[in-house]
Design a protein around this nucleic acid. Sequence first.
RNA 1: GGGCCUGUAGCUCAAUUGGUUAGAGCAGAGCGCUCAUAACGCUUUGGUUGCAGGUUCGAGUCCUGCCGGGCCUACCA
Length: 571
Amino acid sequence: MARTLITSAIPYINGIKHLGNLIGSQLPADLYARYLRARGQEVLFLCATDEHGTPAELAAAKAGKPVAEYCAEMWEVQARIAEGFRLSFDHFGRSSSPQNHALTQHFAGRLADAGLIEEVTEKQVYSNSDGRFLPDRYIEGTCPNCGYDKARGDQCENCTKQLDPTDLIEPRSAVSGSTDLEIRETKHLYLRQSALRGQLSDWIDSKTDWPILTTSIARKWLNDGDGLQDRGITRDLDWGIPVKRGDQDWPGMEGKVFYVWFDAPIEYIACAKEWTDAAGRPDADWERWWRTDKGADDVRYVQFMGKDNVPFHTLSFPATIIGSGEPWKLVDYIKSFNYLNYDGGQFSTSQGRGVFMDQALEILPPDYWRWWLLSHAPETSDSEFTWEAFQQDVNKDLADVLGNFVSRITKFCRSKFGETVPEGGAYGPQEEALIAELQTRLTAYQAHMDAIEIRKAAAELRAIWVLGNEYLQSAAPWTAFKDDPDRAAAITRLALNLIPVYATLSAPFIPDAAATMLESMNAAPVWPEDMADALGRLPAGHGFTVPDVLFSKITDEAREDWQTRFAGVRT
RNA sequence: GGGCCUGUAGCUCAAUUGGUUAGAGCAGAGCGCUCAUAACGCUUUGGUUGCAGGUUCGAGUCCUGCCGGGCCUACCA
């Protein structure tokens, strides 16, 4: 059986993510995982929280909590919200897990043994009053170029000039505002990515089926200037994975931790071990997904991420894996996304602009969000969320086209034949034409889903829903019932059979509604490989119940209310 | 500054990689139906494909320039 390993970019720990983050990786990954499972594939779908780094420490300090405690709490919050959106992770891990500590240290040791680690002494800005080294962008000051007084140490946002922290006039800590800064020497480990440039370049060149967005970003980094640069993989922080060489201490690196971008992708692997450890299962059970020498050579590995994550997934992480010299699974396909904007601007976590995942679930069930976000996934360019479009699209697609179809045929049947699939009549030319059309569209739908063309798949699915309404309109069982009840029975029987088919096909997008549809029809989710077959599955005499309204509509009042409520900044 | 992406109907997006008359959904207009969540179906109005050149028998698609939007630019993650 085909096997697919799916990972979603792991969300950072410092707060609740917004809808732009959701559609950028977790939601499309979930769609694909659910689809492949429905097609009978064995799937391992992993995600986790990304917990290390300066922002996590600062967020914890702001919350007045030890960073470990803060992260544990935020992991709970994110895990609960993920459940709320029905994200079907096989395991939702933590980059701070013991498994990731051990594995990250293991990789560092292997890379060092391979001669791919270099120790570099460099100068960093240290803030005495904050008691910490500060990353360049956490230093603020006046731009020497344009005079902007909130320029960051890496770049001035006003004139876009790239800066060094020492360029700033009157530099201060962005954390505390303190000007008590000094330059200190510190030693760090660098991953010699430049030594792997040829291998990485060949590997990227072999990925001819990848989106141009993905490969062009990778090539830019490979070829820009002097080519791929070596990268520091350690930091002077308290919170993180202590620098070790395998299980040995690393002389001279005491008190330092690995850089978050070094350990975060490794968590994709460690997460699989967390998954089997939690169930008390042997390592072989996760290694068959990750080690090509232990059964993973037939696994297809697909990653989902926003475009900002592409360099780390196309270069840094593969450099870690290739450099280790061990037979770990490399990614086979990367699906990357552009950004979702909010009502004319960007969603912003730091500015609290837009709709956040917890708020979204407070006002509407997950299927509404899933459908709209997925059917508008920013695949080719940035896309935009507006409340008007959201209301209009969701009401039309979910309530009018799909929900009302289920409602009209179940209620028609109940009033004329009772809550039982009616007996009598036979499928004729009209039914054959419908089945042929469904089969054609099903093939297209599957092709789009296989190719992870999400918007196209959503459009095709919607077209499949529309076929049900077209059929009812032209077959008009309410007319036939008057002088040919057998004919009306056959039409009704077919239309009722559409419900479990629609539920099964729609489940990756709208799992809750799909479950309700199946439950009300007393049916099981069976993928309709053959439409004629699938539409005969509910036989005459099969009992069902008319479901409650599947999707109630978003009223103008509610939309206006939300529009106002989410216009400002989250407090 | 450099690199990459992008610009198609009022809105959101297609267009088999250079091939006939540029297509869908929504919104608008008209008609039909009465099973249904005032839902559904049919028909229909919208286009100098950002602008200006060029290559070609043929350009939304390729080339050049310009204009607009976006992303990245290696210590945020």
